[in-house]
Design a protein around this nucleic acid. Sequence first.
DNA 1: ACGACCGATTGATTTTTCTTATAAAAAATG
DNA 2: CATTTTTTATAAGAAAAATCAATCGGTCGT
Lengths: 315, 315
Amino acid sequence: MTITQLKYVLAVAENQNFTKAAEKTFVTQPTLSMQIQKLEDELDILIFDRSKKPIELTDIGSKIVTQARNIVNEANRIADIVDQQKGFIGGEFKLGVIPTVMPTLLPMFLRNFINKYPKVKLKIEELPTETIIERLEEGHLDAAIAATPLQLENIKERPLYYEPFVAYIPENHSLHNIQKITVADLDLNDMLLLEDGHCFRDGVVNLCKTNRNYEDETFSLESGSFETLVRLANEGLGMTLLPYLHTLDIKDTEKKYLHHFKEPAPAREVSLLYHKSELKMQIIEALRSTIAGVVKGAITFQNVEIISPLPQKSK
Amino acid sequence: MTITQLKYVLAVAENQNFTKAAEKTFVTQPTLSMQIQKLEDELDILIFDRSKKPIELTDIGSKIVTQARNIVNEANRIADIVDQQKGFIGGEFKLGVIPTVMPTLLPMFLRNFINKYPKVKLKIEELPTETIIERLEEGHLDAAIAATPLQLENIKERPLYYEPFVAYIPENHSLHNIQKITVADLDLNDMLLLEDGHCFRDGVVNLCKTNRNYEDETFSLESGSFETLVRLANEGLGMTLLPYLHTLDIKDTEKKYLHHFKEPAPAREVSLLYHKSELKMQIIEALRSTIAGVVKGAITFQNVEIISPLPQKSK
DNA sequence: ACGACCGATTGATTTTTCTTATAAAAAATG
DNA sequence: CATTTTTTATAAGAAAAATCAATCGGTCGT
């Protein structure tokens, strides 16, 4: 058994396809076929059920894949140990960021980070929370920034900041005259929401749900950007909620429509996520401290009530 | 980097010698030299300081060795997973047993075990606790039976039974007329002890120490077997303490010299030890349940006070 | 200084891995 | 239902690697 064979197994398991896995691992398909067969012969078991299309793991196969991921992770850690010893902070680092954090947080720390750690080749991808979790678990992301708490078995969370929800209430709206609003004022049916898949949307739904205003009807007005939501609100189609950092970009003429919540304001917790194996921990720590540094001046809300970003299973 | 290279590194680190490590790994010495050099080149560090005699690990080298042991353990677990899936309990299994447990416990369960699990090739070695710990940590033993608690970072303990100490007091001894003796009656200076290195000896010393009878003088009478101790006692050279199971072998004519302690009697805890990685756990569990089965009828003391088997550091 | 010991080096040999080309089987297409 | 496409397996040769026997060169102890 070799580490290479284990990597091949992982690639095939993830792609459910020898040919695609071969491309990903930069070898030809027969190489994969042969090496995996060799491993199966050595262990005297079948890892893959090739009769199914697409290919599937056998029972024992999925156990082996779990352990293989373990072994490959531990093997990668050798390079980490060497880097740490050398004081080297560099190499490719893949960071995932959720869409509602990306445009506000990234500009705040990115320049700082690449100046301070020029050897790190940062690859940043905007991804929904769901994809972030998958990729972290499969080791295709080194870290991610997302709303928490997620409380996942294999993923550690390190809070970066708490970002309050801020209401945007247009002129003719019934709540317009209330200065400091409360959760009780909210009505989900009157709320302009991001389209499905955004965890901020789920956060808003959870927030309103706690107020029991929720009715299980379909919302016809949904959008992918806060800018659109604000415009729709201006058109009198309802109010909306924005994360605090997004309110800094609002036009001066529209700032008057922003209403902060009474403390403790509902807020989302934004955290740095990484796999529990703590691979590339030096870079993760460098990232965390860089972000913590810039965030310290810009966003320091503490007296908040954290709203879960998880969609609730509606039965 | 390959698993083979890591195994070679471990072998050289353990033997502090390329030539010996080569024998252990069944390859020639140049193979080790080259593969280890290759790994050092790849990582661009030195694992071994070859200028020292015997060879030593560098700082980074010892970190790599720790991680390499990890990886190799995790790699071995693949075979475990496969065995478990197949319901196969077999293969070589190395068990260490301390000398004062070996002759009494082994005959009780060995026949049972090899009947029940004929495919397990049990290799049993009588070893002092110290060696057992080393070998468990380096993975050269799969499990061991020894007196506990040891409370070691990398080794798990699973108690098998509690074995009370029993006093053997010859006719002319001052305590001879006391039926149920107590710890307070003991005087270490009057005690015949096993030679150094036996944890049972340390247990007895600890027991007496708690009574503050300890004086830091050298004991001139020490032996490697309980049989000798009993004979010396018969000659009037003092009393001695025996583990309960050993008293079952005492001649009928000498049984009258056995004195049990008042409850809670001092006792040693005898446990099954194994590495925290829990490799070959199926066999370990098979062993544990077999021993638990035979022990259940023979030795069921519960109201006991456990005496530490660890030698106390005398400053 | 001499021999014993020990790790590194060399060059031949074997083993392993990988690739190209192709077969075989299954799935998708018309 | 035949044909094309997709996908995995197999075969054979090329490339890479691991291993070995023999030997070198340095260090240590006597």
